[in-house]
Amino acid sequence: MVTNVLYPALFLGGLGAVLSFILLLAARKFAVYEDPLVAAVLDALPNANCGACGYPGCRQFALEYVKSRDTNMFCPPGGREVAVKVAGLLGLEASPGEAPVAMVLCLGSRDKTKQIGRYEGLDDCRAAALIDGGTKVCPYGCLGYASCERACDYGAICMEDGLARVDGEKCVGCGACVAACPRGIIRMGPRGTRVWVACSSHDTGKAVRGYCEVGCIGCKRCVKVCPDDAMQFDDFLARVDHEKCTACGACIAACPRDTIVGVGLTAEALARAYPPAEAGSEGESDGESDGGRS
């Protein structure tokens, strides 16, 4: 009885001891020195390995950060908080940069655009675009098959009535959605206050009117009213220059199609953008919160 237990125990125990000794030797012999700062930085990072920083993963980012001590290196999901923390670990001052945020340049939900045909195929925008699928007549607008929603690791995009909408609070600015969209209607913009023309159509005003209730018709009114010369106009489509834009709200008020969207506007700008007569009907009063209509 004793031997029945003893011998296996001795044998297995001995085997374990020998093997752990070999492992110990190997760990000593092949150990690679690594700056403890790398581990510290890695610890501070979100460790989502999303690749938004341009490095394959968080570890590579940490290695490069410690090596270069470049505070311009930025982790978009971590945002300002992580930037300060990481810079602090190296005794540096975080540079003032902030993660951008995604904006959808289309407002053409299903009820606002003309539909044609019946699409039966893969439930994916890029797949639909390959065979000219999708049912919206507009050749520039959101296809509505949620490729961006699936590409977003942070749940910041959701589809509403065939249109992608970004939750600015959840968006970390990694840009995965931009790459996922076959129509290129998602762009990155500044965090905080921003105004953008939510349309991508380069069709003429007449054509846009034919298929969309909220598309840019190229009337240039926004260009004329902008006091900061921030409205660019090219090929029947207006576009906001975020460097120049002061988010005064003048263009929003001027747009006859409600194509221009503003987020994080000041009370004064809001009042200008949505004159009292219209304010109630448009439901834009929640524009203060970051991601109100976006």
């Binding site: 003309k114 045909g117 065979i131 699928g133």
Partner: peptide
């Protein structure tokens, strides 16, 4: 908006 009367099915070949 209205839909076209003849609704054609779009699929891949």
């Amino acid at each position: 908006m209205t839909e076209t009367p003849r609704e054609l099915t779009v699929t891949s070949s």
